[in-house]
């Protein structure tokens, strides 16, 4: 069936709650209001206020509650309304959630999911538009999921809820309205398994989150320029499917990494470093990164448009390194 990204997440939550009575939801406005973006709409009516809990505006306490609940065997799926607010939860996430399985020698399971949403483009200002996945990517002990479409959102959220480790599930507010085909029957998508969205031979584009769709939008222009791009969506950045990326780069010899987060210190930097460390001799051109400039997300609409990486930025990055004999016929 053809449904939107937000509905796909709503369906995943409902189905997992029906299936497993230990799954519960907590967060700001998730109950009667149905969530700021309508993700939890209708769930309180079906499962009651004991399993769909409206919390005070206290993000650190929400995560702390989830750490405690999950260590006793429940499966909390909590919502941090904007990813920006995750900054106030860092002790709970980094020092508690990420460490407990390790420090208990694996005796303690911590099956908690932190759903949150990030990204710019909706005129929400510097404190409500950030993409902070790199901060979490840096921490061993938490899994980080970034679905780029409705099908992946549903399948990956189900895997997250069934996982016995803390998972941060990052939705993108610009994707909530995206429609996509999602099967009626139960399915999951494994973590650490990248999707080759489109095959190509000249350049590998690794894009995360909503940038996957921007990369796809650039494909036609690139084809007209005689450049065949392979697009890879890692789907989860921790664990990262390095094998698929390396295999692709071994084939194409060229790599572009695209993310919405600022370029400096981003996920792209790690992927670029890993590729040159491991398969340097396969590179036929310098690795390029496409990311946002090193500045807070501007509130002004024209500035925000300028800030957000788009398909033209991807096309320019590709054209910069796809220079040479095999591309020469298209250069005029």
């Amino acid at each position: 069936m053809l449904i939107r990204y937000n509905k796909a997440i709503n369906n995943a939550l409902r189905e997992e709650m029906q299936k497993d009575s230990t799954v519960f939801i907590a967060g700001e406005d998730v109950g009667n209001a149905g969530g700021s973006f309508g993700i939890t709409r209708g769930l309180i009516a079906e499962f009651g206020s004991a399993r769909v809990i409206d919390t005070p505006i206290s993000e650190s306490a929400i995560v702390g509650m989830a750490v405690g609940a999950s260590s006793t065997g429940l499966r909390p799926v909590i919502e941090i309304m904007f990813m920006d607010f995750i900054a106030v939860c860092f002790d709970q996430i980094i020092n508690q959630a990420a460490k407990m399985r390790y420090m208990s020698g694996g005796q303690m399971a911590l099956p908690l999911v932190i759903r949150t949403q990030g990204g710019a483009g909706l005129n929400a200002g510097p404190q409500h538009s950030q993409s902070l996945e790199a901060l979490l990517f840096h921490i061993p002990g938490i899994k980080v999921v970034m679905p780029s479409n409705p099908y992946d959102a549903k399948g990956l959220l189900k895997t997250a809820i069934r996982d016995n480790n803390p998972v941060v599930f990052i939705e993108n507010k610009a994707l909530y309205g995206m429609k996509g085909e999602v099967p009626e029957e139960d399915y999951t998508i494994p973590f650490g398994k990248a999707k080759i969205v489109k095959e190509g031979i000249d350049v590998t584009i690794v894009a995360v989150g909503q940038m996957v769709n921007k990369a796809l939008a650039a494909v036609e222009t690139l084809e007209n320029n005689g450049i065949s791009a392979e697009i890879i969506d890692p789907r989860t950045i921790t664990p990262l499917d390095t094998d698929t990326i390396k295999q692709s780069v071994k084939k194409t010899g060229r790599l572009i990494i695209v993310h919405e987060a600022v370029k400096i210190g981003g996920v792209g930097a790690e992927i670029a470093a890993m590729i040159q460390e491991d398969i340097f001799d396969y590179l036929d051109a310098p690795i390029q990164r496409v990311g946002a400039p090193f500045t807070p997300v501007p509130y002004s609409k024209p500035l925000e448009n300028y800030y957000l990486p788009n398909e033209n930025d991807i096309i320019n990055a590709v054209k910069k390194i796809c220079v040479g004999r095999q591309f020469s016929f298209a250069s005029h």
């Binding site: 340097f280 396969y282 590179l283 036929d284 051109a285 910069k320 220079v323 020469s328």
Partner: peptide
């Protein structure tokens, strides 16, 4: 490029034989 170097090395051809067409 590293890829061109590795390939030329494998073939045993010195780099100065090639005319570079890249950036």
């Amino acid at each position: 490029s590293p890829r061109a170097r590795a390939y030329a090395n494998k073939l045993g051809i010195a780099l100065d034989h090639f005319e570079g067409s890249g950036p």
